[in-house]
């Protein structure tokens, strides 16, 4: 069992639904993005194209962040998900410097989105996160254990995100990677990411 995700760049319309649903599900504070969408224009007029690249923790098989962590706070679950135990994190940020994908964030102080202070939602969802520790995506572990897809997958309006078991050769994710030449970001880093992209 090794959880992974496939993101079909042909289907992605850059709606930021994944980013918003992730924030709603995980209650991440300002400055912390478990899921992001990078945007870029390509080409020159009149043949221009907008490229969207949704990014998240790559849950690498050989994660540089886990090796760099001095306390063991960063670890790998038996299903391949890379996670952080906030009770063990000392906030040294060495994992953030080790992650070639820049998908780890420090929650350095209690924060809120609006000048009036924390909303009831923020008190309930954002307030549960420890401060002065590093945070990252864990493939919505609670949802996955309850038999649901991660929030970004469940809320993608174009079904551009597919979640599944990479070790199962008959799973949809494995088939898509094989049939449509799925690629990973920065393969030269030799971290063996478990998030694959299908070309446009």
């Amino acid at each position: 069992m090794r959880y992974g995700m496939v993101i079909d760049l042909k289907r992605c319309i850059g709606c930021y639904g994944c980013q918003l649903s992730c924030k709603a599900e995980n209650g991440t504070p300002p400055g912390v993005f478990f899921a992001r969408v990078l945007k870029q224009e390509e080409g020159t007029y009149p043949t221009v194209n907008m490229l969207f690249l949704p990014v998240l923790c790559n849950h690498c098989e050989e994660p540089a962040c886990v090796d760099a962590c001095p306390t063991g706070a960063s670890f790998i679950w038996e299903d391949g998900t890379v996670d952080i135990d906030p009770d063990q994190c000392v906030g040294c940020r060495s994992c953030m410097m080790a992650c070639p994908y820049g998908n780890r964030y420090i929650n350095d102080k209690p924060q809120h989105y609006f000048a009036q202070g924390q909303t009831a939602f923020e008190q309930a969802r954002t307030g549960r996160h420890q401060t002065e520790v590093v945070m990252k995506c864990n493939f919505c572990r609670d949802r996955v254990q309850a038999g649901q897809d991660p929030a970004c997958v469940a809320n993608c309006p174009t079904s551009a995100r597919i979640f599944g078991d990479l070790d199962d050769s008959s799973s949809i994710v494995s088939r898509l990677i094989k049939e449509r030449a799925g690629f990973t970001l920065h393969p030269e880093m030799a971290t063996k990411p478990c998030v694959y992209y299908l070309p446009t």
Partner: peptide
């Protein structure tokens, strides 16, 4: 961020330079 947990930093000598 959490200096009171400093002693935990001895636990990953095999992989972590910190």
């Amino acid at each position: 961020g959490h200096p009171e947990r400093y002693w935990r930093m001895m636990r990953r000598v095999k992989t972590s330079w910190v």
